[in-house]
Amino acid sequence: MTIDKQDGPYEVVRSPEVTRRLTLLWDPPEPKTRGRRATLTREDVVAAAVALADEGGLDALSMRRVASALNVGAMSLYTYVPGRTELIDLMIDRVYAEMDLPRAGTQWRPALAQYAREHWTLYQRHPWILQTNMWRAPLAPHVLDAQEAGLRTLIDAGPTERQVVEILGVVDNFVQGQARTVIAEDREKESTGLDSDAYWTSMSSFWVDFFDVERFPTMTRIWNAGAFDEPQGTFESSLERLLDSIELTVERARAGS
């Protein structure tokens, strides 16, 4: 099966590097051990790399450190993975396989909520994923399974195909932004010993010594109304508000069709 674009055929570019990278994800060759019995599997290498990244982020990931964790020489890893870029591709595909994705036929709102929650949980479990460029996620089997599941939640709900892509992009950006905020806050708390409340208490002199009510009248008005006293919305409450907005778009699309 081929995918046709509305504006006609387009150039297909193949390079040895890209072909090698994609082949490793979709049709990986057996490691060549030159007659020796393999002491590792590619899955062993990927699992060790994921464990290192879970503990110290991608900055802690190198072929040498993975080899050390496996008690083998660094050069032996290249039997299984050509390099760090390909290794990260395999790591992302491996952890994406952990998600419980919404099944076909599920109503769009609970399905989309499940899609969002599974990504949220994934980022909490493996925060190093967000150190990568999510707009250039590897074209890997389980990554595309997740995207397929997300698109499937809305494709027959009423919105046009373009709207489906836009909505899913909004959901992805929302979840990634929320996850980055929580992860950054956890790291700040760990490094400084101050949680969010303690930090803002430590900065409280600013409002008396430097804040200018004439320069920031809107902020002052909201402050006086006590709106800033409300606790920051949780992921779940924010997700529900987002789904409410998407529901309006879905209903509008159905009415228009």
Rank of each mutant, 00 (worst) to 15 (best):
Q6I: 13
G8A: 05
G8C: 08
S15N: 10
R21S: 14
E30G: 06
K32W: 10
G35S: 04
T39I: 10
T41N: 05
G57F: 01
A60N: 13
R65H: 08
V66T: 15
A67S: 10
L70S: 11
N71L: 00
T79W: 06
T85L: 09
L90H: 07
I92E: 06
D93T: 12
A97R: 13
D100C: 05
A104Y: 06
G105N: 08
Q107C: 02
R109S: 04
P110G: 00
A111L: 04
L112Q: 02
A113I: 07
A113T: 08
Q114H: 06
E118S: 13
H119T: 11
W120F: 14
R125Y: 03
H126R: 02
P127L: 01
L130K: 03
R136D: 15
R136K: 05
H142C: 07
A149I: 13
E161G: 13
I167F: 03
N173P: 00
V182R: 12
A184Q: 10
R187Y: 06
K189Y: 03
K189T: 10
S204G: 06
V208A: 11
D209I: 04
R221M: 00
F228V: 01
P231H: 10
Q232N: 06
T234M: 07
E240Q: 12
S245T: 09
T249R: 15
